[in-house]
Design a protein around this nucleic acid. Structure first.
Length: 846
RNA sequence: GCCCGGGUGGUGGAAUCGGUAGACACGGAGGCCUCAAAAGCCUUUGCUCUCACGGGCGUGCGGGUUCGAGUCCCGCCCCGGGCACCA
């Protein structure tokens, strides 16, 4: 008697029982654990290391369908690469700091750690029940003091290296709550989601990471990465490198100040008819004349309540977005005075916070000039017939003094040369990328490990005293203010340098800091005196396949790339390790009612209801089959039907694999012996089934490599259908077995439980399916002996014929012209032209 | 608004390099099996004209390039993601 509860049960496909059995087995046997090589072992290892990583999740409770989708793809990659003979590192952890837990704490008064730990437990369970294969020994949680210690140690190394610094920056301040708000907490109309007060900007001294130091390397590094092109484009645009010039203009009637502007179009300087400075510009006060004070103050007040997104918008009434300062700058190119305006769409964070405005060659400037009735002077001759307003294209310079007659490119260089010769300006490269503001005025994050001492100033916490951990006895006030800021026990400390009373930094780090190095900790989570060992990082990194949502295309992926370079430069990571993720795949999102599925929108569909009914394998198959992995999925009332369909398909595979398939031929001879075919073996049927089998291997392997999971599943369905129809055609037992065996192997990474169970029942003596090698197609079955060629007349399909795959152009055309149906379609007309593209088509043009 | 994507039958989608539009499914229709049902199996299914043979139309909209466009180019419309403190 078998001790196997599943085998003992029944012959019907019982997903829940099968899945529980195999999940336990994978965990108990540590099937997907992989060890780091011992010293000197790397050279002899016969399995090449391969690192598959899904973006670690924020634990918001049980998995949602976005997680299911992500981890299904990741698990497929892990099992597929393992079967291909790689030593696969497949770790998982939790991005466990963040705002939602803190909000929950404020609501209920419970400590965020309690919520977080509960939610991690729920999420873990749903991942296990999905059948995802991880080396759980390597699990990391960002709120674990062991992890925090290293996040803080890294912060200090950055501080030491000049990569972390303090500066003033504005935050969203809610006057009602007396607290800082996240952008998400500010409603579209600029009010606080909690109190409804109008949110204003307020300057605070905060910590930054100097990501801009790496702007060029972040840009150039993209070239070598196998990432989706659109993600690279987004990153390039985000970095926003632009070449131009910076120069200084005198202020009319003043010698105590001057205005420095950045421009990408120094060639247009003769067309400058005004200048604009940001509302935060230090000269605003200086340049504003008494007569203009009222309008300027009114503008500044309005701007304080406007988000950057709205400020950068080209919508909105320009008449309300600018104000004249009353001062004039002198255009150094022609000595003419030009008025200086303030406008909200000029940001202090970019360039010098001041621009020269050339309405003739910039549409935004043109629109502004129209509203404020400022002159427009063309400096580039637009092409013949040009009817637009601002012209920003190529052309010959006009109205531009010594630049007249030059092309735009030449004129740029000449203008910069002139500025340099006058000693008032120079060539300058600017980036849109800004330094990374890492300070958060929150409790549930990793504390920034510094103290402030009256005598010594800012002092880093010594590494031996790390981690700095937030206290447990905290009280959450309904205002949302971080309890750290009023917890005396935490706040008050002694200076590590002089021993006098000092206060701790109460800000915590952006959670993107935690997610910028977790993939390195996974390589070596046991490391006790460094965040990770150089050897382990060198062995596994960079991540061979990173998988996550497209919504992380810019921020997370940019920050992690910055971290990799910075860690390498401060000596924590191997010097040659400059990029963390070699191959990236960005999956689409799950949408419900038109927007992304997320806890905050309340539109979650828990996977557990499927685990208990159709099983995890059916849900996984659905996610693979529903569409291209990169595309968004609309989850609606029809989705359950599709999942049902996947479950029915797996039932078909089960019956085929376990030998209880009902034959497709109806009639009284129906019996369960039908998968053991009769004696009359049809050789053509054998060949046809084996061809299908081997072509499916080739197609599925290729599809898995190129992330076309939906078509891989379709190919498996075709093989399944053909196996069933072969049952009626007298196929040999050997051929049928080869088809079924192959089908199970190809399904193993997709629906691992079903594949494992069916395999074990079919081949009880064999090693488990997931330790089998990935099948390789036999080329003799891949050869094609004839293909269908289309014959068109004037581009319309009129007939189809069988041709040899290597048929020549002339022969194809001849055969096409000889077809009776073509003669009819031609109706006596003489072909003007025959386009012959064998073996695809012949097109006859009359 | 800016940057990046997307739009193909009743539905999800396929078409990998400019060459058969609709693979594979879901749903529908008809049938087999059954006392009946469920399950399973078989056939059929883009729209439209035609008894039929066969024809016409068809990949968001409008233009263009080409023998040929879902695919390339120009201009729109609609939907989604990101926009630096959601993660």
């Amino acid at each position: 008697m078998s001790a196997d509860p599943v085998a003992a049960e029944t012959d019907a496909y019982d997903a829940a029982a099968v899945e529980e059995k195999w999940q336990r087995q994978w965990l108990d046997r540590g099937t997907y654990q992989v060890d780091n090589p011992a010293d000197g072992e790397q050279e002899t290892s016969q399995h090449a290391p391969y690192y598959v990583l899904c973006m670690y999740p924020y634990p918001s409770g049980p998995a949602h369908q976005g997680h299911v989708r992500n981890y299904t793809f990741g698990d497929l990659a892990v099992r597929f690469r393992t079967m291909q003979g790689k030593a696969v590192l497949s770790p998982i952890g939790f991005d466990s700091f963040g705002l939602p837990a803190e909000n929950a704490a404020i609501k209920s008064g419970r400590h965020p750690r309690e919520f977080t730990d509960e939610r991690i437990a729920e999420l873990k369970e749903s991942l296990v029940r999905l059948g995802a294969s991880y080396d759980w020994r390597r699990e990391v949680r960002s709120h674990d003091p062991e992890y925090m210690k290293w996040s803080q140690a890294i912060f200090l190394r950055f501080l030491e290296a000049g990569l972390a610094y303090r500066a003033n920056a504005p935050v969203n301040w809610c006057p009602g709550c007396q607290t800082v708000l996240a952008n998400e907490q500010v409603l579209a109309d600029g009010t606080c989601e909690r109190s409804g007060d109008t949110v204003v900007k307020r300057d605070l001294e905060q910590w930054f990471f100097r990501i801009t130091r790496y702007a060029d390397e972040l840009l150039e590094g993209l070239e070598e990465l196998e990432w989706p092109e659109r993600v690279k484009i987004m990153q390039r645009n985000w970095i926003g490198r632009s070449e131009g010039a910076e120069f200084t203009m005198e202020i009319e009637g003043r010698d105590d100040c001057a205005l420095t502007v950045f421009t990408t179009r120094p060639d247009t300087s003769f067309g400058m008819t005004y200048a604009v400075i940001a509302p935060e510009h230090p000269l605003v006060d200086v340049l504003t004349t008494e007569g203009q004070r009222a309008v300027v103050d009114e503008l500044l007040e309005r701007v304080a309540a406007v988000s950057d997104i709205d400020r950068l918008s080209t919508e909105g009434e320009l008449s309300k977005r600018g104000a004249f300062t009353g001062s004039y700058a002198i255009n150094p190119f022609n000595g003419r005075p030009i008025p200086i305006y303030i406008a909200d769409y000029v940001l202090m964070g970019y360039g010098t916070g001041a621009i020269m405005a050339v309405p003739a060659e910039d549409q935004r400037d043109y629109d502004f000039a129209t509203v404020y009735d400022l002159p427009v002077i063309r400096t580039v001759q637009p092409p013949e017939g040009w009817e637009g307003e601002a012209y920003s294209g190529e052309g010959v310079k006009v109205n531009s003094g010594f630049l007249d007659g030059l092309e735009v490119g030449e004129a740029k260089a000449a203008a910069i040369d002139w500025l340099e010769s006058q000693g008032i300006g120079q060539r300058k490269v600017n980036y849109r990328l800004r330094d990374w503001l890492v300070s958060r005025q929150r409790f549930w994050g990793c504390p920034i490990p510094v103290v402030y001492c009256d005598a010594c100033g800012m002092v880093p916490v010594p590494e031996g005293d790390l981690p700095v951990v937030a206290p447990d006895d905290v009280e959450f006030r309904p205002t949302g203010e971080s309890p750290l800021s009023y917890h005396d026990g935490f706040r008050n400390t002694t200076c590590p340098s002089c021993g006098m009373a000092a206060v701790r930094e109460t800000d915590t780090m952006d959670t993107f800091v935690d997610s910028s190095w977790y993939f390195l900790r996974f390589c070596d989570p046991w490391s006790r005196d460094t965040p990770f060992s150089q050897e382990a990082a060198g062995y596994w990194m960079p991540v061979d396949q990173y998988i996550g949502g497209i919504e992380h295309a810019i921020l997370h992926l940019m920050y992690a790339r910055f971290f990799m370079k910075a860690l390498s430069d401060v000596g924590l990571a191997p010097p040659s390790l400059r990029e963390p993720f070699s191959r990236l795949f960005t999956q689409g999102m799950i949408r419900m009612g038109g927007s992304k599925m997320s806890k905050s929108k309340g539109n979650l569909v828990a996977p557990s209801r499927y685990y208990e009914t159709v099983g995890a394998d059916s849900l996984r198959l659905f996610h693979l089959f529903v569409g291209p992995p990169a595309d968004d999925v609309d989850w609606d009332e029809k989705t359950d039907e599709l999942i049902e369909g996947c479950h029915r398909y797996l039932g078909r595979v089960w019956r085929l694999g376990t030998g209880i398939a009902t034959p497709t031929r109806p009639g009284p001879e129906v019996d369960q012996a039908a998968t053991r075919p009769g004696p009359e073996v049809d050789q053509a049927a054998d060949r046809s089934l084996l061809q299908k089998t081997h072509r499916t291997v080739a197609k599925v392997t290729d599809d898995l490599e190129r992330w076309s999971y939906n078509t891989a599943v379709a190919a498996l369905m075709e093989l399944t259908n053909e196996s069933y129809s072969s049952l009626r055609k007298g196929v040999s037992e050997r051929a049928l077995d080869e088809a079924i065996r192959t089908l199970l192997l190809l399904l193993a990474p997709m629906t691992p439980h079903l594949a494992a169970e069916t395999w074990e029942r079919r081949y009880p003596e064999a090693p488990p399916i997931h330790s089998q090698p990935w099948p390789v197609p036999d080329p003799t079955y891949l050869a094609v002996d004839s293909v269908i060629m289309v014959v068109q007349v004037n581009g319309k399909v009129r007939d189809r014929i069988d041709v040899a795959p290597d048929v020549g152009e002339d022969e194809a055309a001849e055969r096409a012209l000889a077809l009776p149906r073509i003669a009819v379609a031609l109706a006596g007309a003489t072909p003007k032209k025959v386009i012959s593209r064998p073996p695809k088509l012949v097109n006859i043009v009359v």
